[in-house]
Nucleic acid binder design. Structure first.
Lengths: 109, 109
DNA sequence: AATATTCATCGTAATAATACGATTATTAAA
DNA sequence: TTTAATAATCGTATTATTACGATGAATATT
């Protein structure tokens, strides 16, 4: 992509965009749903359920960890992934507030 | 990107991902905030406020329109953009439900 | 020690997204 | 009719993302 100019926007806007990215791919939505519902936890179980190669799942997990919305505990040779509650709440609150900014009134179109 | 295999996921998961994409770029967050707060409406005003070229803003607007979260009324030679309330609510409800799936209990990590 | 299991990382191919200048289309205004 | 204003679209360069096979690292098991 052409160089998303993050520095030209507010940190809040950039953080919202980053949190949204966690949900901006069906595979990551699936992963987050599985973790949130505690239907899976171990990386291998996620790989079994998802229609993607192990390396790809691992890549998505890495991205989710980078954003902070999940955490991973190693329990060799397995790794257990879970929702990272503080960031999950940050996302929930952030989007909640964002959606509340729009009040149903006179739109000009 | 490598061919996001949308067909391998549920329509719900794909729709969530699509709605999330509306917020997955700081420029689109900025646009949606401006529209939601009714601080701008006309395309040209958005271009004035945003640190991006007109063509780029137009491209983002097109993507937001494709997702359905905004609509545009032409009032030649201007175009007035507004939040598309039904989809805005769809997004609000969708993410609300998604975040509520996770209940604060015993995480395994 | 040798093997098996699990997951991360590397390398890389393919594709999507971002950005912008230039052009076009449309309509208003002069 | 000519000109100005506005916004969409085109073309294209650049960069990011997605995907997967192969390999590597770490630990448990035999």
């Amino acid at each position: 992509m052409g160089v998303t100019k993050t520095e030209l926007f507010t940190v809040e806007q950039s953080r919202i965009a980053e949190l949204a990215k966690a949900f901006a791919h069906p595979a990551r939505v699936a992963i987050l749903q599985l973790l949130a519902q505690r239907k899976a936890c171990v990386c291998g179980d996620l790989v079994d359920v998802l229609p993607l190669a192990q390396a790809t799942v691992s890549q998505h997990l890495k991205e989710l960890k980078r954003i902070g919305i999940i955490k991973g505990d190693i329990d060799p040779p397995r790794v257990c992934y879970c929702i990272n509650e503080p960031v999950w709440e940050e996302a929930r609150d952030t989007f909640g507030q964002l959606f509340d900014v729009f009040i149903s009134e006179t739109n000009c179109c």
